[in-house]
């Protein structure tokens, strides 16, 4: 499932971002370009972090920006940004992997998240994601999960 959504087009590699706001914007671009989300969704994700703190950093290095379905989601989608140099959040949390989740309702994404949860439970896989240099490496990590 993860592989079906994280196609090559949805995965980007960049050296750095100015700050976490820019990282979320960059990471969301493929979703916006393919009309899976509206611009409002990006603004809301950033606003949420400003209001609630960097709770989207689910574990060291890994952030999953997201907002609610009614904040501008058209279709279920995932996009991934890997930064060579990560960004710092208020309070000292740090992330260089940004996986943007766009969920159109409360259920359709749960299978994806269960799969993702298995990936993130393995420190080895998280490290591999955080240091991935190209799509092929990401594909291999996701491929193993599908077995």
């Amino acid at each position: 499932m993860l592989k079906k959504y994280l196609t090559e087009e949805m995965v980007q590699f960049k050296e750095e971002a100015k700050n976490w706001e820019e990282a979320i914007q960059l990471a969301s671009e493929p979703l916006l370009k393919n009309h899976l989300i509206e611009k409002e969704y990006i603004d809301t994700m950033i606003e949420n972090v400003k209001n609630l703190g960097p709770y989207i950093v689910l574990l060291p290095k890994f952030a999953m920006p997201h907002a609610r379905p009614e904040n501008g989601v058209n279709q279920l989608g995932l996009s991934l940004l890997i930064l060579e140099n990560g960004v710092q959040f208020d309070g000292g949390k740090f992330a260089n992997v940004f996986l943007v989740l766009a969920a159109p309702d409360k259920e359709s994404h749960l299978t994806l998240l269960s799969e993702l949860s298995t990936v993130l439970s393995s420190q080895e896989k998280v490290d591999a994601l955080a240091s991935a240099k190209n799509y092929q490496e990401i594909f291999v990590i996701l491929e193993e999960e599908a077995k």
Binding site: N48, L52, Y55, I56, L58, M64, H66, A67, R68, P69, L101, A103, K106, H109, L110, L113, S114, L116, S117, L120, S121
Partner: peptide
């Protein structure tokens, strides 16, 4: 509990 109640809290509850 998470910010939106549809993503991270679901994954956390599995664990």
């Amino acid at each position: 509990v998470c910010g939106n109640g549809l993503g991270s809290s679901f994954m956390m509850s599995l664990n």
